[in-house]
Design a protein around this nucleic acid. Sequence first.
DNA 1: GCTTGACCTCAAGTTGACTTCAAGTGGCAG
DNA 2: CTGCCACTTGAAGTCAACTTGAGGTCAAGC
Lengths: 141, 141
Amino acid sequence: MKLLDIGTVAEQSGLPSSTLRYYEEVGLIQSVGRHGLRRQFDAPVVTQLALISLGKMAGFSLEDIKGMFAKDGTPQLPRAELHLRADALDQQIRGLTRLRDALRHVAECPAETHMDCPKFKRLMEFAARSTAKRSAESTRR
Amino acid sequence: MKLLDIGTVAEQSGLPSSTLRYYEEVGLIQSVGRHGLRRQFDAPVVTQLALISLGKMAGFSLEDIKGMFAKDGTPQLPRAELHLRADALDQQIRGLTRLRDALRHVAECPAETHMDCPKFKRLMEFAARSTAKRSAESTRR
DNA sequence: GCTTGACCTCAAGTTGACTTCAAGTGGCAG
DNA sequence: CTGCCACTTGAAGTCAACTTGAGGTCAAGC
């Protein structure tokens, strides 16, 4: 099995070694040995880091991500859970899309006062609604 | 001009008053007086809070958002900035979409080892690419 | 007049995800 | 053998965006 030392992993993944050590500390990845003091990793850790980065993009916390992979880095979630996550992502995507369109609209809207624009107003209502909802459900956190 | 005291604003905006005080402290909103000790706000502050929440959803920091309002609270939106933000959202949406598809795929793919699946591999390449890119541009932070 | 409860202030604490620091270590080139 | 330099450690620091806590104040209802 080809081993990479931490510097190499850092280079290949684009992450600083301090981050790699941190990820190991919190249990996201595992080193398999040492070369002197230097941590050594199995090659697949690079793939695993890519997955982690993907999870982060999706807005998952490191803790969440930790739960999605077995220690070898392969996804380890029951199908139902995966579908749930996918559905949640769908929601998120829809929200962001709306927001993006609104942003573009506002950027182009010629009206000097955005408040007159019906599109803008609808957007604000949406924003107000979701603020309210978020703080309402924050009781369960 | 109708004045709302902080409790009313909190209720209408769905934000805790601690947050409202914080927002005032950092200069995002302004109170216009006191009723006893109680801060009082002009009614339009509620609209302003909706805008702020919108900005947050779009990924702007409070500092960014602060720059988008004149001192009277009317939006003063930099069009170029909005377009940039919209582009960033596009990126994020694309990433999330890919992730969602991948999740769905993983949930259904019968292959025991996902690493052999071309779809999965493509996804991971993308993830690796964007990790590298992000840390490359993180030099400018 | 007194109590109550929602507010006040200021300081400190929290969270997540890292980064930075000081002091030390060890493989390897010369 | 010597020095270098990329690594090591554990602890502490950072950042944004709030939240919490302790102790105080005041308008309104009884």
